[in-house]
């Protein structure tokens, strides 16, 4: 068990929904933490850490589908549901993200 799990989180407005084109990702800073926000074509929003745990790849430049995010550098895939890597490698951290009046709000 890690202390971070117990820490309370705060919401940060990082940008507007239209800053993230459908199906793509964009990187933002939320309260000093780099995160990547994705808007899938089904309208759902997801947020992960910005740098790939494998070798620091830019996850916001990755490709997505309803289940996973694929890093552009070595194509490791990470599940939206829990951030786990499909290969069993180290997973990504996922953050809650929602839309409030057109703003993207990320809890970090």
């Amino acid at each position: 068990m890690s202390l971070t799990d117990l820490r309370t989180t705060t919401g940060h407005v990082v940008g507007r929904v239209e800053d993230v084109p459908p199906g793509e990702g964009r990187a933002f800073v939320a309260g000093g933490t780099q995160i990547a926000v994705f808007r899938l074509r089904d309208g759902s929003l997801h947020a992960t850490q910005a740098a790939c745990p494998h070798a620091g790849g830019p996850l916001a430049d990755g490709q997505t589908d309803v289940d996973v995010l694929v890093c552009p550098l070595h194509l490791y895939a990470y599940r939206w549901s829990d951030g786990a890597a499909t290969s069993g490698a180290t997973g990504v951290r996922v953050y809650p993200v929602r839309e409030v009046d057109g703003d993207l709000v990320v809890d970090v």
Binding site: D19, P21, R26, A27, A51, G56, P58, A60
Partner: peptide, 9 residues
Amino acid sequence: PGQFRPALP
């Protein structure tokens, strides 16, 4: 939008 935005700011 943001096609050339940095991804690791």
